[in-house]
Design a protein around this nucleic acid. Structure first.
Length: 103
DNA sequence: CATTTGACAGGAA
DNA sequence: CTTCCTGCCAAAT
């Protein structure tokens, strides 16, 4: 059922990302039904209607690099949270080879 | 319907 | 490595 808006799907999908894993904007866009709409996904994250239920910190760029974060100090806080959850992080980059989320 | 806005992606310099 | 540009997409105004 496609009655929900693209953003609504994005929020639902992001909230399903398991702890210790990360997903790229591209992947989320694809799961939301619009492959290539990574940019729209980013806009949805920025809207962030519920940061308590939407672990937007588990969403990273195509190369595992963080693109942005509206809470905490910024990118630094995002990296620290991911590391604390068990995501394999090297420097400022998440290792998608070992921590990429997939259905 | 036209324009603007972005937490993107990929490539070129 | 950084910086700039182009292409892409959905939502808001």
């Amino acid at each position: 059922m496609q009655s929900k808006s693209f953003y609504a799907k994005v929020y639902k999908i992001v909230s399903k990302i398991p702890k210790g894993k990360v997903a790229t904007y591209q992947t989320i866009a694809r799961l939301a039904g619009s492959p290539g709409a990574a940019r729209a996904v980013g806009t949805a994250m920025k809207n962030n209607p519920d940061m308590k239920t939407i672990p937007c910190h588990r969403v990273v760029g195509s190369d595992g690099k963080m693109r942005g974060y509206s809470a905490g100090i910024g990118i630094i806080t995002k990296i620290q949270m991911l590391k604390a959850e068990g995501v394999d992080i090297v420097g400022d980059r998440a290792q998608l080879q070992t921590s990429a989320w997939k259905t």
